[in-house]
Design a binder for these strands. Structure first.
Lengths: 160, 160
DNA sequence: CCATCATAGTTACATTTGTAACTATGATTC
DNA sequence: GAATCATAGTTACAAATGTAACTATGATGG
C-alpha cells in the first residue's frame, strides 16, 4: 500500500442521507399521493391500476405479459384481474391456440375509467415535476434508469 | 380562447416512462437488494433495520422520535422494537419524567450487529451509485429532495 | 384537585402481500 | 403417442402492514 488518506470509513449510517431510504420514502409518498386519486374516485388500488394501465396500453394482453411489463408477480396480477373483472372493467377471453392463457381486454366501462384516470395520472406526474426544468427532469430520468440497471445487477456478490 | 397549439393531451400512459411507476420499481429493487443483505445474515427486516439504524444514529431515543426520523408509523415501530428487544438487540428504559415514553438503546449485541451492518449498507449504497460520477450523484440527490418536497405538498387539490 | 383533553405506545382486527402448492394445458422425447 | 417436463394461471396458507380501539400517563382549565 502506498500514499495514504484513509477514505474515512464511516461508523454510522445517517438515514436521512442514505439513498435506499430516501428512494423508498419518495416512492411511498408518490405512490400514496397518486393512489389516493384513483383510490378515492374509482376504488382501485395500485395493482389494479397497473393492470388497467397495461391493458390500456396494449389493448389485448395476457397476464404473463402484463407481469413482464409491470413488474408484478403473477399472483398479484391474478388477484387484480379478478377484482377488475368483478367490477366489469375488464374481460377475459381464452386463447384458442393455447388454452392455458387468457387475453385480457378493457370493457367499455373499463375503457371509460381508464380514460378518466389517464389525464389525472399524467397531471399528477406533471405536478410532481413542476419544480424541475425540462433539463433537470430529463437528467433525473436518465439517472433513475442507470441506477435501476445497476440495482438489477445485484452487484454480483463480490462486494457483499 | 386565442392562438392555438393543443399541448397534445395524451390519451394513454406508458407505464415504462411513468415517473411514479419507475420510482416505485427502483425503490422496490433497491430495498429488496439491501434487505436481502441484512435479512439473510441477521434475520431482520426493513422496519427492524430502520429502528436499529435510528437508534444507532441517535444512541438513545423514544419510539415517537424514531417515527419522526424514519417515516414509519408508531405501530410498525412498536412491532419492530418488540422484535429487536426479543432478540436482545435493544433495551427499553422508562423515562422517569414521562412514564408514557421509553428510551430505546442498543445492547452490546445490538451495537455489534449495527456495526456489522453499517459497512454493508454503506457499501451497498456505494455500489449502487458506482456508475455515476460524483456530480451526477449529487445532482440526483438534489433532485430527489426537490421531488420529495413537492410530493409532500400533495399539490393542494386545485389540480386534481 | 378533579374533569377533560392530549399523547406514547400497545393490542386487536381487517386487508394486503408473498410463497408454495396445485390445476390445467402445452411441448418434448423416446 | 404415452411419459416426462415446462408453463399460465389460481388457490391456500402464512407473514407483513394498516386502521382503529384501547391503556396508561401527562397536561390543562376551572
Amino acid at each position: 500500500m502506498s500514499s495514504a488518506s484513509k477514505p474515512k470509513p464511516q461508523r454510522s449510517v445517517t438515514l436521512a442521507t442514505f439513498l435506499p431510504y430516501r428512494l423508498n420514502v419518495l416512492a411511498t409518498v408518490v405512490s400514496g399521493g397518486l393512489g389516493r386519486i384513483y383510490g378515492e374516485r374509482f376504488g382501485i388500488g395500485i395493482p389494479e391500476w397497473r393492470v388497467l394501465a397495461t391493458i390500456g396500453e396494449f389493448k389485448r394482453i395476457t397476464a404473463k405479459a402484463i407481469g413482464q411489463h409491470s413488474e408484478m408477480g403473477k399472483v398479484k396480477i391474478s388477484r387484480a384481474a379478478a377484482s377488475l373483472e368483478e367490477r366489469g372493467f375488464i374481460q377475459r377471453e381464452a386463447n384458442a391456440d393455447d388454452l392455458r392463457e387468457m387475453f385480457l381486454t378493457l370493457t367499455p366501462a373499463g375503457q371509460s375509467v381508464y380514460d378518466e384516470i389517464v389525464p389525472l395520472a399524467l397531471n399528477y406526474a406533471a405536478q410532481l415535476t413542476a419544480d424541475l426544468s425540462p433539463d433537470e427532469e430529463a437528467t433525473f430520468g436518465m439517472l433513475l434508469d442507470r441506477l435501476l440497471a445497476r440495482a438489477r445487477k445485484e452487484f454480483d456478490g463480490s462486494e457483499l
